[in-house]
Amino acid sequence: MLLFEQALNKLQSGVMILDSELNVIFVNHWLVESFTQVSVVQGSVLTELLPELSSQRIYTCIRQALDRGLPAVLSPALNRTPLPLYSKGKTDAEPFAQMIRIQPIKHDNKSYCMLEVQDVSTMMHRERLLNQQAKKLNQMALTDELTGVANRRCFNSLLEHAIAEATRQSSALSLLFFDIDCFKLYNDHLGHQAGDYCLSKITRVLSEHIKLTQGIDRAASLARYGGEEFCIILPNIAPDDAVAFAESFRHVIETIGLPHPASPVSSVVTASFGISGFKAGKSDTFTSIVLKADNALYRAKASGRNQVVLANKE
């Protein structure tokens, strides 16, 4: 028995044995040292030292182990700090996160229960960091590196979701494609660094404008489709109504006033817009709404650029 107690006292986790009256029959050194605010020793009554336990789940679990022989596990996800335990005697900090297992024990026809306590604060901290890193990597996978808006992969997912919602609610949905006019000439004349700045500036200003524009659903999304071509998903907005929004977006881009000395369209950077819509119950699909918006954009560019064209209704 002495060897057994010595072994338990060497553990870097807590062990406590209670009888049916919640008397402490055994407590190892690690747990004694972690109870920095109270002195828990053999012979103590746990609920006299910690009366607040009587209203907590850990007390219920202890009683069920003693009275009904039911084991229990208190995970840190739902019960972060069941006991007032502190790392290295730091009472000014919060109690460390705990994993507690409660096991019923029968001996000489008497009921006991054993509490196994682990400090899982380091594990939880590591898990938080891993989750943050995973979230960051996932965000990077869905974000265009240059402009910070959604990339094409994210756009596909957003449009699929918007179509599903429009179908479920029988609501309107519009898709805008826009292209920076004569962007190759802009790059050739001013350089790729200026081109990158141009795209970043336009998406930043346009993103803010979309957020502040009345009548636009908060689920509206701006994405980079590729190169100088972008998309805007407008849930709950019919194509005819989307024309006015597209005109405001076109005007915003033009009024940014980025000089475009090589453009045959304007002295500043401009954009052309194509609009299509999705209507549940019709023949519209993900592919068709994209193709119609892209074709409308092509017509806007072929007709002189810096304008908005609505796809033909079918």
Rank of each mutant, 00 (worst) to 15 (best):
L3K: 12
A7H: 09
L8A: 01
G14D: 02
V15C: 12
I17L: 07
I17G: 07
S20E: 15
S20T: 15
L22K: 06
N23H: 15
I25G: 04
F26C: 02
V27N: 00
H29F: 12
H29V: 11
L31T: 03
E33T: 12
S34Y: 00
T36L: 09
T36F: 08
Q37T: 15
V40M: 06
V40G: 09
L50S: 10
P51W: 09
E52K: 08
S55D: 03
Y59G: 01
T60C: 12
C61K: 09
I62C: 10
R63S: 02
A65E: 01
A65G: 11
D67N: 10
L74P: 03
P76L: 01
P76D: 04
P76F: 06
P76M: 00
A77K: 13
L78S: 13
P82Y: 07
P84E: 05
L85N: 11
Y86A: 07
Y86M: 01
S87N: 15
A93R: 06
I100P: 10
R101W: 10
N109R: 14
C113F: 07
M114H: 11
M114P: 11
E116P: 02
E116N: 11
V117C: 07
M123A: 13
R126I: 15
Q132L: 08
Q133C: 14
Q133G: 14
L137N: 08
Q139L: 13
L142E: 08
L146S: 05
L146Y: 04
G148Q: 02
A150P: 00
R153C: 04
C154Q: 10
E160K: 08
R168Y: 10
Q169N: 14
Q169S: 13
S174F: 15
S174G: 04
F178C: 06
D179L: 07
D179H: 09
I180S: 00
D181Y: 11
D181I: 01
D181G: 08
C182E: 14
K184W: 06
L185N: 15
N187S: 07
D188C: 02
L190N: 03
H192R: 06
A194K: 10
A194F: 00
D196T: 04
Y197A: 10
C198K: 07
C198V: 12
L199M: 14
I202C: 01
V205G: 04
S207W: 05
E208T: 13
H209Q: 11
H209P: 10
I210E: 06
L212H: 14
Q214K: 13
G215Q: 01
D217Y: 12
A219I: 11
S221W: 08
L222T: 09
L222G: 07
R224F: 05
I232E: 03
A238C: 02
D241T: 06
V243E: 00
A246H: 00
H251S: 15
T255R: 15
I256M: 03
L258I: 11
S263A: 02
P264Y: 06
P264G: 03
V265G: 03
S267Y: 11
V268F: 12
A271I: 01
S272V: 00
F273E: 00
G274Q: 00
I275P: 04
I275L: 01
G277I: 00
F278M: 09
A280S: 10
A280V: 01
K282W: 12
T285H: 09
T287P: 01
T287R: 12
V290A: 06
A293Y: 05
N295L: 08
K301C: 01
S303I: 09
S303C: 13
S303N: 15
G304Q: 00
V308L: 04
V308N: 05
L310K: 14
E314H: 03
